[in-house]
Design a protein around this nucleic acid. Structure first.
Length: 445
RNA sequence: GGAGAGAUGGCCGAGUCGGCUGAAGGCGCUCGCCUGCUAAGCGAGUAUGUGGGGAAACCUGCAUCGAGGGUUCGAAUCCCUCUCUCUCCGCCA
């Protein structure tokens, strides 16, 4: 085995033909107005006039150069034949010299035009699904359902940061000393509770829910970041390794979705479902002053992520299942939550549709996102070039990719502290978690 | 970190002095035939992307033999750079 069977990472999708990138080029060309309307619904100021000009220029150049290449190919054959027959081909060779030079010029020009075109097309977000409500901000997100109810307290519930510090299981000051703001030290039962949650979630998803467990690299290259849509647009939110084109992952979505980058899956392999625990690293640029206290917004946090590759026909059913799988975690922990369907203005760049699960946090009196479950349709699959063959010998198609948190572990810990607190500042551990904590029933100071 | 070897289609594996090689051969797979079932056998087909023609079957231009660049009328084949894989040595969790 010489190791040549795996596709090469390292190169990203922009080298080959244009096809395998973001929205289909032909689609944009033929539906310019629809794309413009979509951009508007997403509050995206991108201007497509430049796209149009570059696209037309590219097609014209391509037509010219392909004609010349055709001539070159046929003439080369002719020259080969003449040489074999010992005829003099110097006149033909001289003529071809000019054509070759011209081809080289045109190719360079096309490369330049395509680069400019890429810069635009890579910034066009995905088209929202028809079931996505149109709206400008999170105010317009549509309520889908809720589960359980807000716990009643006979006292004013404390925030998780107060509880965590009093119980000596979360140490924000020392976290900041060791690294800086938005880093937290977990200790003793805080650390154990976090680890219990990770194991509980992984066991649930890889058991009853049928996902395959993955432990991926926590550092990825540029091609992977581009494949899932973090690059080029969101470079500011990523931690980049100095001197390398490597990045710390902001979510397991990146390494796990790229498992099949540049591959063609066989029939019968879909849907395939992965569950992965990873830490996640985010710069949180642009959120200065927001959620500065507590565990809600950290530069490093743990997450169990669910990722699916599905056939286009069933991807929305798979989204519902994935959402249910994530909800099950909260139900088993007996935590009240609601589900919302994100509106066009709140939808992420790569997503066609997203459900957020928001857990109730009594310490702060708000619902906070604890999971985000999205169908990307073929947006990521185009960028990462992930296809499948519906039937043997048939044409390939792009798969649909989906993912969702199942769940954000730190925020789950927050929810447990705030929802399961007693008047004495103790935490009653949810029953589902007790086997993971040696049967322990509560955390007390 | 030092020394060497390699990268070709779903897989294995040819590719000689650069030119009828988009790629032999085998395996696998698909369809058809055949055998009472199974095994074996026979025939045909079987890379990807993109453009054009056609209702379709299909025909056809261009590109792709790890990636990028160079030489040449012409490159899987020659040259350079990079990436990855493997082997040996050193170091290390």
């Amino acid at each position: 085995m010489t190791g040549r069977s795996r596709p090469q990472p390292g190169r990203n999708c922009r080298s080959q033909e244009f096809s395998s990138t973001m929205l289909d080029l032909k689609y944009i060309r033929n539906n310019l107005d629809a794309v413009r309307t979509m951009l508007k619904a997403r509050n995206n100021p991108l201007d497509l006039d430049a796209f149009q000009a570059l696209d037309q220029r590219r097609l014209a150049l391509l037509g010219e150069v392909e004609g010349l290449k055709n001539r070159r190919n046929t003439c080369s054959e002719e020259i080969a034949r003449m040489k074999r027959d010992k005829a003099d081909a110097s006149a033909e060779i001289a003529a071809m010299r000019d054509i070759s030079r011209r081809i080289k010029e045109l190719d360079a020009e096309i490369a330049e035009v395509e680069n400019q075109l890429y810069e635009i097309v890579y910034l066009i977000p995905n088209l929202p699904h028809t079931s996505v409500p149109v709206g400008s901000s999170e105010e317009d997100n549509r309520f889908v359902r809720e589960w359980g109810e807000k716990p009643a307290f006979s006292f004013t519930p404390a925030s998780h940061w107060d509880l965590g510090e009093k119980l000596n299981i979360l140490d924000f000051e020392r976290g900041a000393k060791i690294t800086g703001a938005r880093f937290t030290l977990y200790r003793d039962l805080g650390a154990k509770l976090e680890r219990a949650l990770i194991n509980f979630m992984l066991d649930l998803h890889t058991g009853a829910h049928g996902y395959t467990e993955i432990l991926p690299p926590f550092i990825v290259n540029r091609a992977s970041m581009t494949g899932t849509g973090q690059l080029p647009k969101f470079a500011d939110d990523l931690f980049k390794l100095e001197g390398l084109d490597y990045y710390l992952i902001p979510t397991a979505e990146v390494p796990v979705t790229n498992i099949y980058q540049n591959e063609i899956l066989g029939r019968g392999e879909l849907p395939c479902c992965f569950a992965a625990y990873t830490p996640c690293f985010r710069k949180e640029a642009g959120s200065y002053g927001r959620d500065t206290r507590g565990l809600i917004r950290q530069h490093q946090f743990n997450k169990v992520e669910l990722v699916k590759f599905a056939e286009p026909e069933s991807s929305y059913e798979e989204l519902e299942k994935l959402l249910n799988n994530a909800e099950t975690v909260l139900q088993k922990l007996n935590l009240h939550y609601r589900v919302v369907n994100l509106c066009t203005g709140d939808l992420g760049f790569s997503a066609a549709k997203t459900y957020d699960i928001e857990v109730w946090l009594p310490g702060q009196g708000v619902y906070r996102e604890i999971s985000s479950c999205s169908n990307f349709e073929d947006f990521q699959a185009r960028r990462a070039n992930i296809r499948y063959r519906p039937k043997a010998g048939g044409k390939t198609r792009f798969v649909h990719t989906l993912n969702g948190s199942g769940l954000a572990v730190g925020r789950t810990l927050v929810a447990i502290l705030e929802n399961c607190q007693t008047e004495d500042g103790e935490i009653i551990i949810p029953e589902a978690l007790r086997p993971y904590l040696g049967g322990r029933e509560k955390i007390s100071a």
